[in-house]
């Protein structure tokens, strides 16, 4: 049962990662919703801040959601 739970979490996390890459506006809305829930249940401040950071994250300046050229490395995706 625990194995199934771990696998499910991993698969959902990977799906969420790709949703964020392909449709970042959708994931930002989801993070915003999560932020409201955390506010309502008075979750710890660091958790709320982390979620707020993701909800308000600016889209990458690069292409295809890539942030390579935003960083100092100058690496292209």
């Amino acid at each position: 049962m625990i194995e199934v739970l771990i696998v499910s979490v991993l698969v959902v996390a990977c799906g969420f990662y790709w949703l964020g890459r392909l449709a970042p506006s959708v994931t930002r809305r989801m993070w915003r919703g999560t932020g409201h829930v955390l506010e309502a249940v008075r979750a710890p401040a660091p958790m709320r801040q982390a979620v707020a950071g993701r909800a308000n994250a600016a889209p990458g300046g690069g292409c295809g959601g890539c942030k390579g050229c935003d960083k100092g490395s100058g690496g292209c995706h």
Partner: peptide, 8 residues
């Protein structure tokens, strides 16, 4: 990219 797509 590759690990997440492999999992999916």
């Amino acid at each position: 990219i590759i690990v997440t797509l492999s999992v999916l």
